[in-house]
């Protein structure tokens, strides 16, 4: 085995120069951030802070599982589910209506206008819509439903419009050329082609909206989130911990259910 030459060492160092530079940049950024925010990383790892964290965590145990509070949680869970379901359903309807012009089926002007509207709806996050809707419609589930419906309309409208644009035009055109009215040619010729996509997009957004609905309550838009915010504000840690467990259970259940539905839907014809 011959000795490694200087040229070889230089080549080995140089072949991933940008790796070295990236690591260096990352280190500088992390250090800079900590310095700017005056975070004392060392304090996080002292025995004292460890005890403090443990004490804080222990205050959440045991969770409140009195029958009365569980009933309240069940009500909150149902409310969250209802907010997400109604919000998504409204959004799917509005999305399909907006998708038709957005896919360019009613002329270029309307296409541009609806695309702009969809972008606007979509680019405002659910939480911001919820804060606005709480101002407009008052505290409670109605505001949460509206917030989800508005944001999701933007998302689904855009996705539906893309499905429409990619759908083959032949079936609907053939029907129109045998005298079918445009609306009927659409429901017989185009809708059956894109329905699986519309359904799977909507289910996926519903799943996301259930998770979102648990959080929306923080700005007063009803459901489990509002309960959690309320209990935390009053420093009722055992109750808050029950609500958090309920949220986790709900999300796990929804994930499992949606995976099951999607598996069924994806199954090939047979």
């Amino acid at each position: 085995m011959s000795a490694v030459s200087f040229a070889e060492r230089r080549a080995a160092l140089g072949f991933c120069l940008h790796c070295w530079l990236s690591l260096l940049l990352l280190a500088v950024l992390v250090w800079g951030s900590f310095a700017y925010l005056s975070l004392d990383l060392a304090r996080l790892f002292t025995a004292e802070s460890g005890r403090g964290m443990l004490q804080f965590a222990m205050r959440f145990f045991p969770p409140d599982i009195s029958a009365e509070f569980l009933r309240k949680i069940a009500k909150g869970t149902l409310e969250t589910l209802a907010i997400s379901a109604v919000g998504t359903l409204l959004a799917a309807g509005a999305g399909l209506l907006l998708a038709l012009p957005a896919a360019g089926r009613m002329g270029g002007v309307l296409k541009g206008l609806t695309r702009f509207l969809l972008n606007a709806l979509r680019s405002v996050p659910e939480l911001v819509w919820a804060a606005l809707m709480v101002l407009a419609a008052g505290l409670g589930p109605f505001a949460g439903t509206l917030a989800l419906a508005l944001h999701t309309s933007g998302v689904l409208g855009r996705l539906f419009a893309e499905s429409l644009e990619n759908a083959p035009p032949e079936p609907a055109r053939a029907l129109a050329e045998s005298g079918a009215a445009p609306a009927l040619a659409f429901v017989y010729g185009t809708l059956p082609v894109i329905t699986p996509q519309l359904v799977s997009y909507s289910l996926y957004r519903w799943e996301m909206n259930i998770r979102m609905a648990t959080v929306l309550g923080f700005v007063g838009a009803g459901g489990l989130g509002q309960m959690l915010y309320y209990e935390l504000s009053l420093l009722h840690e055992p109750q808050a911990s029950s609500v958090i467990i309920a949220m986790l259970a709900l999300v796990v259940l929804v994930d499992a259910a949606s995976a099951w539905v999607r598996r069924r839907q994806m199954r090939p014809a047979g």
Binding site: A167, P168, E170, Q197, R262, Q265
Partner: peptide
């Protein structure tokens, strides 16, 4: 038309 798969994002 025959290969429009349900797309999942």
């Amino acid at each position: 038309a025959s290969v429009a798969p349900p797309r999942v994002i």
